[in-house]
Amino acid sequence: MKETPVKVAAEDGRIVEPPTSDDSPLAVRGLTVSYGDKPAVFSVDTIVPQGSMMAIVGPNGAGKSTLLKAVLGIVKPLSGTVSIFGESLSEAQQRVAYVPQRASVDWDFPTRVIDVVLMGLYRELGLLGWLTNRHRKTARACLERVGMVEFAERQIGQLSGGQQQRVFLARALAQDADLYLLDEPFSGVDAATEKAIIDVLKSLKSQNKTVVCVHHDLATVADYFDRVLLINVQKIAEGPVATTFTAENLQRTYGGRLAATHIDDLQLPAG
């Protein structure tokens, strides 16, 4: 039983070969990840063009976070390939920044806001690189961009959820990457934080950087993103929001779990 999905995925990955990716920021082919016997992500292909903002959308348990983690090498895929700017992950690691789910860490950890942002400079600092004022200035500038500079000396547990999310974004900014992968950055944040985050992401896009967000709020997909990847373990659809984010595709992604009235509220273009 355990072997079957692996083989199918490998074959599937070879059959459904997407167009060549050259050096696009993120190219995923035939990616299959499994926890135990059940695949969490099954043979997903996607190519993200440079300078785009893509939402990964799908129901709970659809493998959205797992897909991001597999791209980042945090979970090992059973099969499939990931290339980042045409290189392997380890070669292109310094060009990728990651914002994990806020709930994935213990915010009682004894550290200050500025220290968290400085973690984003680890690749530059290395094991024993001396922390200089230049690094601190960089970290403060990143906090400035998310509107958190006055909280630099606070312990991270004393922040609200939205503020914590902005600190995570500032840490990713400190990584000065070309591809930003964010896991539910808008989950459980206040309106001011949502605005601050989307402003930063749009400024990244205007610098021709590429942003990929796991996103769960269907109502904001069309406003925030220009591309969408709909997945429910397998890829359902992918493409520009205007043509891909349709009622029909959403119905296929969510199955019966999305009420017709909910889809009507989204005022989507006719599928």
């Binding site: 983690k69 980042l72 090498g73 945090i74 380890s90 690691q93 990728v96 990651y98 994990p100 994935s104 860490v105 213990d106 950890f109 550290t111 968290v116 973690m119 680890y122 690749r123 600092l125 290395g126 094991l127 024993l128 840490r171 990584q175 992968l181």
Partner: peptide, 22 residues
Amino acid sequence: YLFWRPLKISTFDEGFAQSMGI
């Protein structure tokens, strides 16, 4: 002392540490 930074980062946020190649 030597491994302070990777120890601290991976203790606080393991996923982020892995994404940086730690």
